[in-house]
């Protein structure tokens, strides 16, 4: 999306909706929470687009997404630490070449998701924005409002902590 273009809300929803949903899901580990959070983000985007001026659209979008997530999480007065739901198992079961391989893959996914959820929020957010959303360190720094050096540290330490848990 070029910086000169102000997209419509429908374009944003269709282009980024799935990524926003996956971002929320990997941070919460819960499909219902991810749905509610994604809906909240899309509502804020719709309101925000009225005053949006062409610039770094993705930076703007992910700031909104992050803020919505934090606000909603605070509102619910809890930090998400829910284990992976059954639905994820069924989604993965149908795609692998054999049942054993599928089960092993799902178990591994479960473990990785659990390791993600065990991270302190700031580390989890940095890892998810980098490895799930695909933002650069500069974009993550802009989104989170921290220096790039902090992003680099959070990502590396987050991965190292996950590795210890998975070992």
């Amino acid at each position: 999306m070029t910086d000169e273009t102000v997209p419509s809300w429908e374009e944003v929803a269709h282009r980024y909706g799935r990524t926003i949903y996956n971002f929320a899901y990997r941070l919460t580990g819960d499909r219902d929470d991810a749905y509610d959070l994604s809906q909240e983000v899309l509502l804020r985007v719709r309101k925000g687009l009225r005053s949006y001026r062409p610039g770094s659209f993705e930076g703007w979008l992910w700031r909104i997404t992050r803020n919505a997530f934090i606000d909603e999480t605070r509102r619910r007065k809890r930090r998400p630490t829910v284990p992976l739901p059954e639905a994820d198992r069924s989604a993965a079961m149908g795609t692998a070449p054999s049942a054993d391989e599928a089960l092993a893959a799902v178990r591994l996914d479960d473990e990785i998701q659990s390791a993600l959820l065990a991270l302190p929020y700031d580390f989890r957010e940095a890892v998810v924005l980098c490895d799930v959303v695909g933002l650069t360190y500069d974009e993550i720094a802009e989104t989170a409002g921290v220096p790039v050096g902090t992003v680099r540290s959070r990502i590396h330490r987050g991965r190292a902590m996950m590795r210890e848990r998975l070992a």
């Binding site: 909706g17 799935r18 899901y25 994820d88 989604a91 996914d109 990785i112 799930v132």
Partner: peptide, 13 residues
């Protein structure tokens, strides 16, 4: 670890 997170399935909306 990085590879494992990146290979997590992308869920459908």
């Amino acid at each position: 670890t990085r590879d494992a997170v990146r290979e997590l399935p992308l869920l459908d909306l």
